[in-house]
Design a protein around this nucleic acid. Sequence first.
DNA 1: ACAAAAGTGTTCACAATACACCCATGC
DNA 2: GCATGGGTGTATTGTGAACACTTTTGT
Lengths: 234, 234
Amino acid sequence: MPDRPKVHLAVDAVVFGYQPEIGISVLLIKRKFPPYQGGWALPGGFVNVDESLEEAVTRELEEETGIKIAYLEQLYTFGEPNRDPRQRVVSVAYFVLVRQDIYTLHAQTDAEDAKWFDINDLPNLAFDHKLIIETAIQRVRNKIIYEPIGFELLNESFTFAELQKLYETLLQRNIDRGNFQKKIKSLNILEELKEMRKPSGSGRPARLYKFIEEKYFGLKDRGDMFEVWVGKER
Amino acid sequence: MPDRPKVHLAVDAVVFGYQPEIGISVLLIKRKFPPYQGGWALPGGFVNVDESLEEAVTRELEEETGIKIAYLEQLYTFGEPNRDPRQRVVSVAYFVLVRQDIYTLHAQTDAEDAKWFDINDLPNLAFDHKLIIETAIQRVRNKIIYEPIGFELLNESFTFAELQKLYETLLQRNIDRGNFQKKIKSLNILEELKEMRKPSGSGRPARLYKFIEEKYFGLKDRGDMFEVWVGKER
DNA sequence: ACAAAAGTGTTCACAATACACCCATGC
DNA sequence: GCATGGGTGTATTGTGAACACTTTTGT
């Protein structure tokens, strides 16, 4: 193999979290070194020669933020020659979903170093990281319609109202309550729990449900689709 | 930035072609150098420091096969540490569609070096290229349902029968003739030509159509989907 | 009792499906 | 005329969408 200048390989992670009151957030870190020193950027870093790409992402996330991954998927590889001002760096971007209940980690983490940002209120970003985040948002919005990845953003048990609100946030549209419930129930991928969620004010308590991954794989194998339809409402 | 061992970056292309009598084929090259010398592999090669990933794919395809690209899309990045037996090579895979009418190029090309293979009858492949091809086939099958990429595999003008046969081949199912025609026509992305295609044997001549990209973008912007439905037939 | 939120049932419209029928050509 | 493939029309069925109604809680 001829000796030639080498291209550096990095991984970056777009980590999504969800809070009902806030919406979808992305985890960003403040850079300690140039370029873009002191600026906000995606967590990530260079790949070691002996680790897989997924291992590299997981390691970097652990090192920089201590986050727990609920779902990890390769997003896209960004390789424009000038995306890093100093040298040629190609970055394999991943997107990550984390659960609500461990979302509070950002409080434990050094707030100067790692912070959640509402996806509708992002700061200026280093490199092409704005483009990467936009790509990730698109992907999640598309994917949530035909694959049950939304559950990875909620607690293990959740109510229909919570699930619906997540979908409404992601899809940016209102969904009919009754139809949503019937549709999801017809997919038979949820387990009905005995517990209920007490309402904050008045109102009937809501039943809690749990996503059962095995049931979904059954669906998939039979060729049936998940397909949370795209309601016309609003 | 710390000095560290470098990862090599390559691109590979899964080039798809289509012939009604044969089906979907993939373009492979016979390797001239180790590893896997003399074995069949995807066209591809290392990325230069000053070129984008797409430029690298295009250049390598030009160099190795002289093919003309109708559609190019990034597929996935394969980065398992041992996918190349000698050193760490991460490969960004692309899939490419080429048109029927230039498909005959493979005859001009040195038959010892580059050849089309029916996707149902592939030889042993170097590296993890079998996995890459399988991933590409999956992607094309999914994508053809909701994006009009099928046209890139046909001539510029085509009949409904030809289009339908392509879809039946890709989706591996029979489609009702009348419903298919109505569905595609309702999308309003085709231009009706004056010419007809003379039948090979007996039968009524078929009208020729042309795909108009601008019309499709109109659809997309309005939020309407392309959505070649998945008929239940067969 | 009333408000509020959860959950179920009912109706309507439209689109996918199946399939019948007509059209244009070769032999 | 008949076979062959192209093209259009139509009845049926299934499902999304809208919305009304019932249930269970807090105040």
